[in-house]
Design a protein around this nucleic acid. Structure first.
Lengths: 344, 344
DNA sequence: GTGAAAGCGCTAACAC
DNA sequence: GTGTTAGCGCTTTCAC
């Protein structure tokens, strides 16, 4: 198992400098008084001996790690990493490290991640819940008063959440299509009991325009599996005028289906991503540069509250998305997701 | 700072069950013998008391963490996360956790990440080097016999590396364009002293076809900054027939430039990503489902070698990319990166 | 200013 | 099978 040379500790440095471990500790950290002379001597010796600070010992002693644990639900979702980037940068500024885990949209893995975070003594946890199956753990986290925040989804109503208002996004998208006289708008949304909001906005738009809602056109699919075949079948058997894809993954699959079947329906996709922009697709843009601010503020407030105790009801902070209209949602155009003809 | 209830330890459980801490430790881990009866009693008590295992104590005691540290150079590069996903899954199978850090293509942050990994007592480190500025740390890591591997780039020649053979990719791309009688092929490549390979393949293809190389057409740009304006200017002032974008970021920027300037040049982009496929762009595909195998094998071999000592020369494992020909590299077609005309 | 010493929670000899 | 005990490397009172 790899011959690992025992690494040098403050004890070794203490011996080499003829001082106590306490002095070395003080010299190396910023805490406590050490004469400038010794501080320099000790620091040089540490460098010379190839000293590596041992976090585990510090965390064990202090009982906290100065770390925020973040669970990303889908490693393939670029959008999550865009937000993650901002979170890392911001928490860094506040003196916190970020520990990242991936749940792969799987509750069991989420459970392991949460347990692992607790075992690592993280100071706070941010996660995108897959289900509400880990309630026992969530309650344990709350009991320990570890600040907890749900991101993008609120599976546990008594835990704070920062969510994009997808209902509003669906409303904007549906309205935009209905106003073009497109009657049969297919909504592809995610099968998550605790986020029915997309369909709400869909319905709201219909109601506002006094149009009947055909509930058959609201399709819920699970995350993490291909919907191409089901989608293909649905379009063929139903009289669909336009499509709203509730996630960019769905969007990408719909586009593939359309290309393969040589059909062209107006399309709006959730999430403003680079490739969608490039394809001239109308999107519902999540405000990437706002989300992290709410998250960081929520967590830092809890962390700085000397007497923080987990509240019994969670607040839901909603960030409003924006509809970015491009050509893909235009009724009159015929779209093709390829590049073999010029448009000049 | 958040009132955190002191969490229960094995000591508390020992007291509650009237046994010693050693017995609790044995009951909770798989190591050592405990009577079935006590094992069950202790486990139930642990659950009842909301016991959370403390990693830091274990790592401190054992001196190793069963963790592989991985540094991702660019959080926005989707390709890295595709590989990361495979790595996480594979290492998990081997019983190792993965600790992730991002260097944001910055050597100083890389240095912090490496130090942090060492402080966390990771068992091995995989990273995509930004520069060779952290040589002192790399040497320290080697001295500690912590298995180390460079991924995608080899900045330190004496450290093992798994790289995609970009030279070969550039060769394939250049050849493909030259064979279509496109003479002035612009190569946009990265400004990294330790990876001159793309230009080598570019030159090789010219030589094989007995064509002169115009070195002006090999442009090196730094990572992490927009090249749009420079690229725009270059195309306007030079007589460019076709473009090879050395990274997908460059590719995306080139496409934007072409769209904005309404010009259409044959294009080949490095990295096989979903949106490039959707845009019908010819790509140099990195073999995503092969890379991680070499990485995991390299690391696991070192980890399992009971008497592993860092070698003094590094081997460079090269994974060959493949050219996936689509419409964007076709001389005759006029391309447009939008969707406002059908192609049926 | 500096040192001695206790202890964070766990593991792993070593006894019995 | 089970208990005792000595640390792992660090921080932090509390003396001096």
């Amino acid at each position: 198992m790899v011959v690992k040379r025992k690494s040098t500790s403050i004890k070794d440095i203490a011996k080499a400098c003829n001082v106590s471990v306490a002095t070395v500790s003080r010299a190396l950290s910023k805490r406590g008084y050490v004469s400038e002379e010794k501080r320099v001597e000790i620091r040089n010796m540490a460098k010379k001996m190839g000293y590596i600070f041992n976090y585990n010992a510090q965390i064990l002693q202090r009982g906290k790690s100065n770390t925020i644990g973040i669970i990303i639900a889908d490693i393939e979702n670029h959008f999550y990493h865009l937000v993650l980037k901002n979170l890392i940068i911001d928490f860094e500024k506040h003196g916190y490290k970020v520990l990242i885990a991936y749940s792969f949209e799987n509750s069991d893995i989420e459970r392991e991640n949460l347990t692992s975070f607790l075992s690592s003594k993280v100071d706070a946890i941010i996660f995108t819940p897959i289900s509400n199956k880990n309630e026992d753990l969530i309650k344990l986290i709350n009991k320990q008063n570890v600040p907890l925040l749900q991101l993008f989804r609120q599976a546990y109503p008594y835990v704070d959440a920062v969510c994009v208002d997808d209902g509003h996004g669906a409303y904007l998208a549906t309205k935009h299509l209905l106003e073009q006289e497109l009657k049969n708008v297919l909504l592809l949304t995610v099968k998550l009991d605790f986020t029915p909001s997309r369909s709400k906005g869909y319905i709201q738009a219909h109601e506002e325009l006094d149009l009947p809602v055909n509930k058959e056109l609201i399709c819920r699919y699970p995350l993490g599996v291909s919907i191409k075949d089901e989608c293909r079948h649905f379009i063929k058997t139903h009289n669909v005028d336009a499509i709203i894809a509730g996630t960019n993954t769905f969007g990408s699959e719909v586009m593939e289906v359309m290309r393969e079947e040589k059909i062209n329906l107006p399309l709006i996709v959730f999430d403003e991503l680079n490739w969608l922009k490039m394809l001239n697709v109308t999107t519902i843009a999540q405000p990437i540069d706002l989300i992290h601010k709410d998250v960081v503020e929520n967590i830092m407030t809890k962390l700085n509250d000397k007497s923080y105790v987990t509240p019994t009801i969670g607040q839901n902070i909603r960030v409003k998305p924006v509809l970015i209209v491009r050509k893909s949602s235009n009724k009159k155009r015929k779209n093709s997701y390829s590049i073999d003809k010029t448009h000049n």
